[in-house]
């Protein structure tokens, strides 16, 4: 059953300083058929491991030794600059718009994810998000999207409650089909809502899911 949501098997480098959690995530990813080629505990080791193994994707914590500040995020941004196209999923203990913004601004914004660490508890969602990122998608934690939407600025006031709901799901990186299933409506209805949202926000229409996500996020961050 789980193999469906995990997509193709990936070779992953994992960086997480808590041993307990590191072992847990390794076990989880292995269970879903992925291979963790290196599991490290700090940012320098992460950079070294990526150089050595050339993985399909990187999963990293934000806060890591030695400074216990945002070394993981720094390493992620650096990796994306050095290796465009390397999918990176960043796990954060806190929802921070500033972290998400910095990460999404690195590279071209594709193949990148920012999730609250709690999401690893939803094992299937977590593995699905990783697969999405590895396939070049953009995943942003719903909590970040909710924070962005809470800044009720005027253009957003023009949206209907249903459109706001759809917008939140778009920003999380969901496809039209997934949004339709979540809201229990037809895909055509979702398409219509999205068209109307993009028009109201003066954004260019886009087919590609991640480009759509990026357009919406760029608008929300502005």
């Amino acid at each position: 059953m789980p193999a469906d949501s995990s997509g193709r098997p990936l070779r992953i480098v994992l960086a997480e300083d808590s041993v307990l959690l590191r072992e847990g995530i390794v076990g989880l990813l292995t269970r879903f058929g992925h291979e963790v080629v290196a599991a490290v505990g700090d940012a320098d080791a992460l950079l070294a491991a990526v150089a050595e193994h050339g993985p399909d994707a990187v999963v990293t914590d934000v806060r890591m030794p030695p400074g216990l500040q945002d070394e993981g995020l720094r390493a992620a941004v650096r990796l994306r600059a050095e290796r465009p196209g390397l999918p990176v999923l960043v796990l954060s203990q806190y929802v921070q718009r500033a972290y998400a913004a910095e990460l999404l601004d690195s590279g071209d914004g594709t193949g990148v994810g920012y999730l609250l660490k709690d999401r690893v508890g939803h094992v299937e969602e977590f593995v699905a998000a990783l697969a999405e990122v590895a396939a070049g998608g953009t995943v942003v934690d719903p909590e970040v999207v909710r924070q962005l939407l809470r800044r009720r600025r005027d253009p957003l006031a023009r949206l209907t409650p249903r459109e706001r709901e759809v917008l939140a799901l778009v920003a999380e990186g969901k496809s039209n089909g997934a949004i339709a299933r979540t809201l229990v409506v037809s895909e055509a209805a979702v398409g219509k809502h999205i068209g109307s949202i993009l028009t109201k926000l003066d954004l260019p229409p886009a087919d590609d899911t991640h480009r759509r996500v990026l357009a919406v996020l760029a608008f929300l961050r502005a």
Binding site: M1, P2, S18, L20, L21, G24, I25, G27, L28, R31, K117, D118, V120, G121, H122, V123, E124
Partner: peptide
């Protein structure tokens, strides 16, 4: 960290 690990274990157990 322990709570995150716990939710992960419980999530796997549910599977």
């Amino acid at each position: 960290q322990r709570l995150v690990a716990l939710t992960m274990t419980l999530g796997l157990a549910r599977l």
